[in-house]
Amino acid sequence: MWKVLLARLRQKHRTIGYPRRAPVLPERFRGLPAIDDGKIADARAAIEACPANALAQDPGGRLRLDMGRCIFCGECERACPGGGIAFGREYRLCARTREDLVITAEGRRRADALGAEARRLFGRSLKLRQVSAGGCNACEADTNVLTTVVFDLGRFGVQFVASPRHADGLLVTGPVTRNMESALRATYEAVPAPKIVIAAGACAISGGLFADHDEVRRGAGDILPVDVFIPGCPPHPMTILDGVLRALGRIE
């Protein structure tokens, strides 16, 4: 008993000050990429360096980076020594449509909150069922971490629940393997309507590295209507938290 109490004192209060205070991210964190076409000497080199097929040129020769496929490895940044592609420190990356994940020299469109009705229903209490459908356990782990004392997801009224019957929506990770397809559909159908779907991580958004494998579908959007896309490989826990709260209209 005394040992437990003493340990409690020593472990201190550990919940971060977010959203009142900005979160602390690692110095080498790779967040929102920025493109400056004028500084790119060799776009082909950057495109070929990308292991995830996230880079392409539009007909005008301008570079487009699809955050829905990007694994944020920084290989393209290294292939453009002039600073034409640079991963910044912005962790707020979510989008409401697949197209909004595409970055050009003009930047990107920030995500809007869900519609008024969804906000009215879920804004103050959202229960999510997580389904891993081929996820490598990194997206899962950094989703799970939101339930620790550090992030304390419960204080936002958001909770992960054990049954789809108790849930308002799904948070899907992984490219959706063929072997998980029917289980994912069944889980979605078991969630009472109205419901939302959040795709977390490059795999769940687009199939990620595995998009061209016949063993997988191309992410959750291939079989379910996705309301929120949260890019990353895996997304930082703050990126996931931001995605959920932004969709609910809980933060500006």
Binding site: S132, G134, G135, M180, A183, F210, E215, V216
Partner: peptide, 11 residues
């Protein structure tokens, strides 16, 4: 098991 099979080795 097998639900997570993504076919990596062959690629």
């Amino acid at each position: 098991l097998g639900y997570q099979h993504r076919g990596i080795e062959r690629r």
